[in-house]
């Protein structure tokens, strides 16, 4: 029986996130919260491992109370249980404080043989929480996995994406794996699981449940601090041309050559 944990995150649907043309700030009104798209591949892979090897899949997320929606939605794909980590003291956590909180929860759950995360969350795009969580739990990990094969009960061969192509590495369990979307094709949520998900009790663990002091977690426990946010540098004047192809091509090449010289 493998104990499998999938860490997921509720994120704003960034394709809807738009900058206000006047104030250059993000307009969040009416923007849907979704499960971080990469996490769905992590959930799917966990379910596939469970189906092949036997085991239990538990979902874990840290977030505001409404992150429970993300857990219920993800339960609709078939995981067995879910835990929400939510406390005002957790708010404003950087990747370290997030990983620390998740790590403590995983210990409270009795540890795991296999932990999955998506390769990164689409709001912050840091890809740091997974590797940091592995460090905190002191277990090996492989990032950017596109294929998993069990070589024996306790060993996984993982194909991972790299700048140069793909490598195969072998890792002993317990281990943490971050997955890219190439790894599988997530199934559709099942009607039965969705029904069950509606009624599934989801424990909410806060500061005291995890035995933290307020200064260890959230903004206070973070090692990094945002000091300034600003709109990206404005693009130069845009120009659009129409006309016969050779003319357009010549104009473009002229421009590129000028750029090359400057």
């Amino acid at each position: 029986m493998l104990k499998i944990i999938v860490c997921i995150k509720q994120v704003p649907e960034t394709q809807d996130v738009r900058l206000d043309p006047v104030t250059h700030t993000l307009k969040r009104e009416g923007i849907k919260s979704i499960i971080n798209p990469f996490d769905l591949y992590a959930v799917e892979e966990a379910l596939r491992v469970k189906e092949a090897q036997g085991g239990k899949v538990t979902l874990l997320t840290m977030g505001p109370p409404q992150a429970e929606e993300a857990l219920r939605e993800a339960l609709g794909y078939g995981p067995d249980a879910a835990v929400l980590l939510s406390d005002r003291a957790f708010a404003g956590a950087d990747t370290w404080a997030t990983a620390l909180t998740l790590g403590r929860a995983i210990e409270k759950l009795g540890g795991a043989d296999l932990i999955f995360t998506g390769k990164q969350a689409i709001d912050g795009d840091t890809a740091q929480v997974g590797p940091m969580l592995a460090a905190i739990l002191n277990i090996p990990f492989v990032a950017w996995a596109r294929k998993l094969t069990f070589t024996d009960n306790n060993r996984l061969q993982v194909e991972r994406m790299m700048d140069h192509g793909y490598d195969a590495v072998e890792v002993e369990l317990p281990a943490l794996i971050t997955v890219v979307k190439e790894i599988n094709e997530p199934r559709m949520p099942s009607f039965k699981a969705k029904l069950k998900a509606k009624k599934e009790p989801i424990p909410v663990w806060g500061l005291n449940d995890l035995g933290f002091q307020p200064e260890q977690v959230g903004l206070a426990g973070s090692f990094t601090q945002v000091v300034k946010v600003f709109p990206p540098p404005a693009r130069g004047q845009s120009e659009t041309w129409e006309g016969p192809a050779p003319e357009l091509a010549a104009r473009l090449w002229q421009r590129l050559k000028e750029m090359g010289r400057s």
């Binding site: 370290w96 740091q128 590797p131 700048d163 090692f223």
Partner: peptide, 19 residues
Amino acid sequence: AGRAFIPRVAAALKTGLTA
């Protein structure tokens, strides 16, 4: 490679990291 292992180093050194 960098984005895979540097977070692990930062966590081991108990310090901040910006991606």
